[in-house]
């Protein structure tokens, strides 16, 4: 009997000492600000508002733009980790929303190039730092990468346990001529994400955003 009690206590102790699994969620939203995508900012705003309504205390969110060179801290528009207390978290959400509204209002001419890979690398770095249990990279882009001359991005990237979701992937004019271009673009990114250790998904209908993040 004594042995049984000791074993039980030991097992409980070991369980208590083990590394706790984080239940927090972290989301990194990449906004394409190149070319005509600046006109889609109202949709991006809706997505951000949805995310703010879904995320809770302890969760993190960061919004960054995709421009000519996205692997940079400067491209992060706003980021926050919500406080433990729900009332403070609500205030943070309001402030965050104001920040995004200011950014959207101030969006002018789009960037010349589109560095999606750089943005994803930056996202991966940020998400790792948050230590969240569930990590998401949301890409609000047409997924057409257009790198500046001299930028090197054709190497394997690392996105361990990160769910990558492409949002509102618009069809380009060339896609209408040959839809295979669009398919190939999606396939290419899917392959890259899976090779990087992440998972891939596409949501074009923004009415189905409830599939975006696992609800609690």
């Amino acid at each position: 009997m004594k042995k049984l009690i000791l074993t039980t206590l030991l097992a409980l102790g070991l369980t208590a000492c083990s590394e706790p699994q984080s239940n927090a969620r972290a989301v990194y939203l990449l906004l394409d600000t190149s070319g005509t995508y600046t006109a889609e900012m109202d949709k991006a705003q809706k997505i951000i508002n949805y995310l703010l309504g879904t995320l809770d205390s302890g969760d993190s969110i960061a919004i960054a733009r995709i421009d000519s060179g996205s692997f940079s801290e400067k491209d992060i528009i706003a980021r926050v980790t919500f406080d433990d207390r729900p009332s403070t978290a609500n205030q943070q959400k309001r402030a965050f929303k104001d920040q995004i509204d200011d950014f959207v209002d101030g969006t002018g001419r789009g960037s010349r190039h589109t560095d999606i890979t750089g943005g994803m690398l930056q996202a991966s770095e940020y998400l790792e730092e948050t230590g969240a249990g569930e990590k998401y990279v949301l890409i609000f882009s047409d997924l057409e990468e257009d790198l500046k001359k001299g930028h090197i991005r054709d190497f394997p990237i690392s996105l361990p346990d990160i769910h990558v979701v492409a949002l509102n992937v618009t069809k380009l004019r060339s896609d209408n001529i040959d839809p295979r271009d669009y398919m190939e673009r999606l396939d290419l990114w899917e392959k890259r994400v899976y090779q990087a250790g992440g998972t891939w998904g596409v949501i074009n209908d923004l009415e189905r955003m409830d599939r975006l993040i696992a609800q609690r």
Binding site: P20, N23, A24, D56, S57, G58, D84, R85, P86, S87, A89
Partner: peptide
Amino acid sequence: MPMSEMVGGTSY
């Protein structure tokens, strides 16, 4: 729900 305001809503 209000308890999370006292002891925090993130710890498990």
